[in-house]
Design a protein around this nucleic acid. Sequence first.
DNA 1: ATGAAAGCGCTAACAC
DNA 2: GTGTTAGCGCTTTCAT
Lengths: 325, 325
Amino acid sequence: MAEIGQLAGVSQVTVSRALSSPGKVSPETLKRIEDAIARTGYVPNAVAGALASRKSNLIAALVPSVTNIVYASVLHAFSEIMWGHGYQIMLSETGLQPDREEKAIAALLSRRPDAILLTGVHHSAQARRMLLNAGIPVVEIWDMSDTPIDCCVGFSHSDAGRAAADFAVQWGYETAATITAGDDRALRRRDAFTSRFETVTRSKVQAMDFDVPATLGLGREAMAKLIELSLPPRSVVFCSSDQFAQGALVEAGVRGLTVPDDVAVIGFGDQEYAASSAPALTSVRIDRQVLGRTAAEALLTRFSEGPGAHLVKDIGFQIIRRQSA
Amino acid sequence: MAEIGQLAGVSQVTVSRALSSPGKVSPETLKRIEDAIARTGYVPNAVAGALASRKSNLIAALVPSVTNIVYASVLHAFSEIMWGHGYQIMLSETGLQPDREEKAIAALLSRRPDAILLTGVHHSAQARRMLLNAGIPVVEIWDMSDTPIDCCVGFSHSDAGRAAADFAVQWGYETAATITAGDDRALRRRDAFTSRFETVTRSKVQAMDFDVPATLGLGREAMAKLIELSLPPRSVVFCSSDQFAQGALVEAGVRGLTVPDDVAVIGFGDQEYAASSAPALTSVRIDRQVLGRTAAEALLTRFSEGPGAHLVKDIGFQIIRRQSA
DNA sequence: ATGAAAGCGCTAACAC
DNA sequence: GTGTTAGCGCTTTCAT
């Protein structure tokens, strides 16, 4: 920066100003500085800037997995907006082990981000402590909480599970099964679904659980077992993700069952392909675009309005009825 | 850090040493320092550390899209390894507009990462200049280049397209069509496929192009048009991604066509569901795990061996024959 | 094994 | 509108 100043015949500070508030330097000076920058290919050192100003323009984000489209698309919507406001994203994955979250949070906080986005609302005591200590806005997404750390944007997974059960009952399904991945939130949806469906219909809901992420292949497997265990007619299968549901659809098709007459399927997530599969998939829609955007907006208003505003927003969900149930 | 020192009865420098090279402080001192850290919940300021040491332990990564599983999974494999070696990842998306890459590179470089990962091998002159200027290891992935900036890990898309054409010819397909997304590399595969298939069979290859990312829905649409345009028997459709291919499969099924007898389909990417769909999808496999891992290893050896080693690695591809072609 | 001093490349506060 | 000065919180080097 001092070098650029030399080339432009000004001091280092003026270069700094030209970069951060161009209105504060005279047009001619600005021009000379810009020329010098263009000639040298100088890229300012944001690390030094962050240290001096105590503002990093960095947002830390912690997601279970980037390869899960459901988390990735929320992240995408979120980062588009933050990027538009001059923020960059530092990403970290927690994977399946919850103990990784604590380490990840510490690592992220060490970069002194201006805010942090967390997936889920269950965090260790030590994690909460570090977060509070950091004194930065926090937004928890994908869930609702009675005791949010700060901002919270999501929906109630129990409500979603119950709504799916009510939907199934309403459309006349008399027995049900679930296919569920190894995910805290998926389990809560399953529990709510099962409990509601059982109390209303007085029939037992069969559970197929996996402790790994959902795939189409596992969905097929689960459906195959369910069919072999002889699923009664008017049965519905509530899946924890559209991937399982797709697999269930494929397996039913291969075995010559008609969907939804022989067996109905409800997915979760309403991913792009849900509407385009054959038969089209009935699914619980979460507007991931809105989720990401709302989280970004929550942070942005927290930045401008200070720690007073603990934004908590329920973005809800919607059951999209198509052909599979 | 000075505060921790006070609590532990040592100077700030000793705390610094305790954190970066614990072997250099006496066990008792170390213990007291660790206690103080645990008590206060102190998180070191990596920003200041990076400024002082000129080492950020940050890797910048630039991908077209995080919502595309193909890029996300490479990123995942890459970051798992880098994380294991103490590096964090700063992520940025370029999207479809190539001009965004330059801005993203500048923004990322301003954080003084220790290395940068780029998707693709075509970069603007200004981008190359900034990269060279930064003086850090660069790894370009997903493609091969005659003039890599530094390290390069990928495969030849032209070779892949040609191989698909040869495969199609070998299995007796006499006419072909392509469904292609708006992606530089996909277009190169299509061109190579078409050119090879046409010269060998002397039949014209029909192209269905989109300038947006691939979806199952668009795959159905494209296949529908292809069928309406009357695809001759013994036709094969080469898709630029498995998503298109899945859509093509669904549409063929809905229209009562038998795959591969009435129409055959070849996907690209060999995603998880390719093996589990019905019929199972024939696809060009890229080992994304290996791609990400190899890129990480290239950087790691560049770190240890210095600028001498310009690692260039072709990870190849493999056509997985299943039922659809 | 520990400490003192210098400085990383910027921004903030204050002068002029 | 521009320059001077003093840090930001660490690591590095050199002393002890």
